[in-house]
Design a protein around this nucleic acid. Sequence first.
RNA 1: GGAGGGAUGGCCGAGCGGCCGAAGGCGACGGUCUUGAAAACCGUUGAGGCGGUACCCCCGUCUCCGUGGGUUCAAAUCCCACUCCCUCCGCCA
Length: 435
Amino acid sequence: MIDPHVLRDDPDRLRDSARRRGEDESIVDTLIDLDVAKRTAQQAYDEIRARQKALSKKIGPLQGQARKDPDNLDTQRELAELMSAAGAMSDEVKAADARAAGLSAELNQAWLSVSNVVDPRSPVGGEDDFVVVSTHGQPRDFNAEGFIAKDHLELGQLLGAIDVERAAKVSGSRFYFLTGVGALLELALLNLAIAQATKHGFIPVVPPVIVNPQAMEGTGFLGQAADNVYQISEEDSYLVGTAEVPLAAMHSQEIIDAGHLPLRYVGWSTCFRREAGSHGKDTRGIIRVHQFDKVEMFVFTTLEQADAEHQRLLAWEQEFMDTLEIPYRVIDVATGDLGASAARKFDIEAWIPTQETYREVTSTSNTTQFQARRLGIRTKIDGATTPVATLNGTLCAMPRMIVALLENHQQPDGSVEVPKALRPYLGLDLLPVRP
RNA sequence: GGAGGGAUGGCCGAGCGGCCGAAGGCGACGGUCUUGAAAACCGUUGAGGCGGUACCCCCGUCUCCGUGGGUUCAAAUCCCACUCCCUCCGCCA
């Protein structure tokens, strides 16, 4: 949700944002019409309701009088007149109320379909129009080392770490078993990530992964992204695609003490994604799966601080990549690829040797006040209550991080060297090939 | 799954159908006192919409007492449904 005042004061900002996103800007005119109609109806209701209340207020005392002096016909008549006038007004009030409520619901519905106003710095365009911000680390030259890199699935099988065939038997395509060192690797990554986050003051959280429609709607995942959401129809609830959802909704309808901001959480949760519309993409291995675990940072802060916090989240993501000694680049995601709630988004893409390209492993978004408005999360600044800003950033999405780790640190025989920082958490310097 | 109890402002907690956006307390904020602080005393203190020509202030008005319906001239208060929480019993990670 966007500040409704923008609609009245500067509707061109909304049109401009929609255009940059490649979305239909005619929604702005619909909103303006609905906004005017709703306010008019609301004023009509307020006015008639005020008259009704004034009238009703007179009835009580008059009834008292009538009881004390039952023979006074003037009082009786006056009372009867008031009652019938108020009775007639009652229907009018109900009608006016229904009109205003209907328009208000319609307006809200329209607002929900509007994506966040993009940051003017976000590059305009589609998925491929990102801007490379920086590149870090040096991809290995496997030719120079004298061997051909194996892909993560082959490595995973050699190590006894990844089993997709049996997962297909049990669950279908895009599922996997992590076994042996694969399972240990996930746990080690989890602990390393949580250790880094808590070191920086994040509060660790294990959130629920089944949420109600308000949480899903509030975080902006029931719009264009709805296709990718698993719905539990019997329960009218959803499986989350990221811990961002429960972490954001955790403080919905609350006023957070300004002294507690920035409020930083690091959540660990399973994530569920239908991956509808991605048939044929990344079908090999565990790059694109229906279920995975992820360590996610989530921050509540002020709008003024949001941009600086976004940079910090990116820096923490980079710190994690650096720790794991994986080459990567940072991209500024283009407007058409932001999703409904983000104003600006940076992705970290890890170098994947066998694909000879960079692939997304983490992502951080500044959703400004978009989610906070929908979820009713506010704070008090100088006596005024105002929506907070929310931001999120991936610290470690397990399957993709494991892919990057295996491929980048592999040895000629298929064993994998463990980055130093991970060794204490794993208890191994090398993932050995299974005999 | 069965039985009972509850949901009110930042928190606790009262509330007869009209005088209730709501007593009282706590907390917070401002002030008096004090070298400073504490204590004591005085005062202020919910959110949101719309309008009064503009952000804040101020004024008016409407909405909000778990959610949604209903009864009534009038609902925090009466009725119905739902959700959540608590206690007890049963079942079970």
